[in-house]
Design a binder for these strands. Structure first.
Length: 489
RNA sequence: GGUCGCGUGGCCGAGUGGUUAGGCAGAGGUCUGCAACACCUUCUACAGCGGUUCGAAUCCGUUCGCGACCUCCA
């Protein structure tokens, strides 16, 4: 199946036709989380966005190697302890080994991702497991003359590099502007220019995460791990590199410089960036302290949350916006998402019971609209609009207000299920299907009793049954064919 | 200060030079013993000001407002 997919490439600031380097294989690298804390809503966005892209590429027939790293080393902090490794700092506070911290939050992260129905990447490399590759890459860059050693640390020489290769293309920066930056930051005195960035940092005596290297006992720089790991698993040139917009500069810019500076080739054909989640218009982020953890969403246990929201509600909420725009968090928005999602999932229950009832609707245009939307830079809000069109069609056929033949009914089922479940990755929340044979039988008894009561016009009794069930979360749904029931989570 | 982006109806959020986005909420109706669900109908738009055009919410300019990056961040 060939689809003409257009993607917005940050590098060119334009939509471009997606043509993979290898005809049938796609290499995709996405910057994963730095796990020194529980995952929050901000982490969920790139995970969901690139999960949908991954799912769609698989659906249209590509063989995809999807690499998403876990960063468990590196990254300096910008507070009073500047210069100290984030993981190491957290470890000190909690009196744990650094790897214990990473392990703890990795497990939570995986659990949260599974709840969001995010497929695992095909490779999930860790920075700490690729120290040798990172050292090798630093050596290559040094050999090529684009880096220098200062006091046991290694820095990338941006000015030198810029003489041979343009630096700043991805983020639209000018090197002369960067060089004139005058702020004083930690470690600046070792750098030749403020725009230079660390490839290897010598560890201070109290720094517990450290590895031997040709230059010092230390740890890798802030950007080298993604370059080293993407090169190792996807090669010097690969198709898609994704991540949050906040990583555009300096992280991704440095990745390009490191790859070009070591291997001589620009690593990425298409740079894709998801935009931020905002809360009251401000970016939700660790450093701003205004983030909400995913587990807090699932439990509703946070002062900004009016209720608990299921993982699927959060996934749906994100799919309602295009990945390139900011998405503002609000209880109102999430509640609307919850209702909309339930309508889709309820419609599927109806869909699987439908029988052809005549000639009428043509599903082909709806199907084409879905593909067209996905092909246009993965426009999930447009896909959802078509899905809601199908919801309307499904319910109308169910009521014999619209008519469908067998061919179109089959097409309706495959289109609906393909896009809702396979591509968008939505599913019924686990809490809903708790029915066992016994509870089914009990429900049948209650529904029959209510039917008898209604026949005898004993509405006090029939309503009492309905209201009591509603109180424990069981909704009765009357229709011409009889009464069905479901548990609302 | 530099770079980039945004401003759509009650809320969230697509799209675009002339034709319904969609969801949630609101209104009216059908269905129902009453409801819920569902279906039908329906109301609120494109920040302000100029310009280009037969025609702009959509292109250009400008003003105002907001945000992101420039330092770790998804």
């Amino acid at each position: 199946m060939t689809q003409n997919i257009q993607v917005y490439n940050t590098l060119s600031r334009k939509k471009e036709k997606f043509v993979p380097i290898n005809k049938s294989h796609v290499g995709m690298y996405v910057c994963g989380p730095t796990l020194y804390g529980p995952p929050h809503l901000g982490h969920a966005r790139p995970s969901v966005v690139f999960d949908v892209i991954y799912r769609y590429l698989l659906h249209v027939g590509y063989k995809v190697r999807y690499v998403k790293n876990i960063t468990d080393v590196g990254h300096l902090e910008n507070d009073a302890d500047a210069g100290e490794d984030k993981i190491a700092k957290k470890a000190r506070v909690e009196q744990l080994e650094p790897m214990e911290v990473v392990q703890k939050y990795t497990l939570i992260y995986h659990e949260n991702m599974a709840k969001l129905n995010v497929l695992p990447p095909t490779i999930e490399p860790r920075a700490s497991g690729h120290i040798i590759e990172q050292i090798n890459m630093v050596e290559e860059i040094l050999k090529n003359g684009y880096a220098y050693v200062a006091n046991g640390s290694v820095y990338f020489d941006v000015e030198k590099y810029n003489q041979d290769h343009p630096y700043g293309q991805l983020s639209g920066r000018k090197v002369e502007d960067l060089l004139s930056e005058t702020r004083t930051l930690d470690g600046q005195e070792e750098k030749r220019n403020s725009a230079d960035f660390a490839l290897w940092k010598k560890a201070s005596p109290e720094h517990i995460m450290r590895w031997p290297s040709p230059w010092s006992d230390g740890f890798p720089g802030w950007h080298i791990e993604c370059s080293a790991m993407s090169t190792k698993y996807l090669g010097q040139e690969f198709d898609i590199h994704g991540g949050g917009m906040d990583l555009l500069f300096p992280h991704h810019e440095c990745e390009i410089a490191q790859s070009v500076g070591s291997g001589g080739k620009a690593p990425v054909k298409y740079w894709l960036h998801n935009n931020m989640i905002t809360i009251n218009g401000k970016k939700m982020g660790k450093s701003l302290g205004n983030f909400i953890n995913l587990d807090e969403f699932f439990s509703g246990n946070h002062k900004l949350l009016e209720q608990a929201y299921s993982a699927m509600t959060i996934r749906f909420f994100m799919l309602q916006a295009h990945y390139g725009g900011t998405l503002d968090f609000s209880n109102e928005g999430l509640k609307a998402a919850e209702k909309g999602l339930n309508r889709i999932l309820d419609a599927h229950k109806v869909l699987i019971t439908l029988k052809p009832n005549g000639e009428g609707v043509d599903i082909q245009p709806t199907k084409e609209a879905c593909y067209k939307a996905m092909n246009d830079d993965f426009n999930t809000p447009i896909v959802l609009a078509s899905i809601f069109d199908m919801v309307k069609i499904i319910n109308s056929i169910h009521k014999n207000l619209q008519f469908i033949n067998e061919k179109n009914l089959t097409l309706l089922k495959t289109t609906f299920e393909t896009f809702v479940f396979e591509i968008l990755g939505l599913k019924n929340s686990e809490t809903k299907n708790t029915s066992t044979d016994i509870s089914n039988e009990i429900m049948n008894v209650l529904i029959d009793l209510r039917k008898e009561a209604k026949r005898a016009k004993n509405f006090t009794l029939s309503d009492s049954i309905r209201d009591h069930l509603a109180k424990i979360g069981v909704t009765l749904k009357d229709s011409r064919e009889g009464t069905s029931w479901e548990v609302k989570s």
